[in-house]
Amino acid sequence: MLISIRNLRKIYRMGQVEVRALDGVDLEVEAGEYLAIMGPSGSGKSTLMNLIGCLDTPTSGEYILNDQRVSDLDDGELASIRNHEIGFVFQTFNLLARATALANVELPLIYARVPARERHRRAREVLERVGLGDRVKHQPNELSGGQQGRVAVARALVNKPSILLADEPTGNLDSKTSAEIMELFDELNAAGNTLIVVTHEEDIAAHARRVVRMLDGKVVADERTSPAKAAP
């Protein structure tokens, strides 16, 4: 089992008020799965993704990633997991504004202590794979939204993570560019990558082979669907 989550809780205390962002979530994900997380706004999707991505720490519960109990890990080990195991695509992509596409994609490799030459080569390779071979020297503000999204995906993929996490990767994109990104995800999954995608849109979720629905910090449905047909 790649991911094993049991009774995970994340509770924010705002003065007297207690917000249960996650209220006892159980979830298991196997390697190679393509999973969509859906649910209304505020249901805890992003909170769950951040916990899976080791960006945040739960209030209680257990999270086992690749046979490692995440709560036992120290800061350095968590950094290493974020670097090697997880590729995160943020809703706003979070690219470094003053860095080129290439430099953005190289970022995880810098922290993986990959030598510069090797880094350039691999980053370029991944950028070519997402169709941006001719845009490596562009800064984010010189790229379209869809291209920025692809840079973000390339950055998430460059260090060959076990899981690709994407929190509403198409939330800011028009339907055409969304389709481009989803096509890329389909290819990645076909190539064996594990994908977890948060989305509001049913047609995006339709690409996944399993849909988890959340409400008020709980998983309320977990159904396997037929794999989406590759886009024409």
Binding site: D75, A79, P108, Y111
Partner: peptide, 16 residues
């Protein structure tokens, strides 16, 4: 701060 967050999200250690 966001840049630092991004760096940490892709694997930067405290020491980095």
């Amino acid at each position: 701060t966001r840049e630092i967050g991004v760096r940490k999200a892709v694997g930067a250690r405290k020491s980095d």
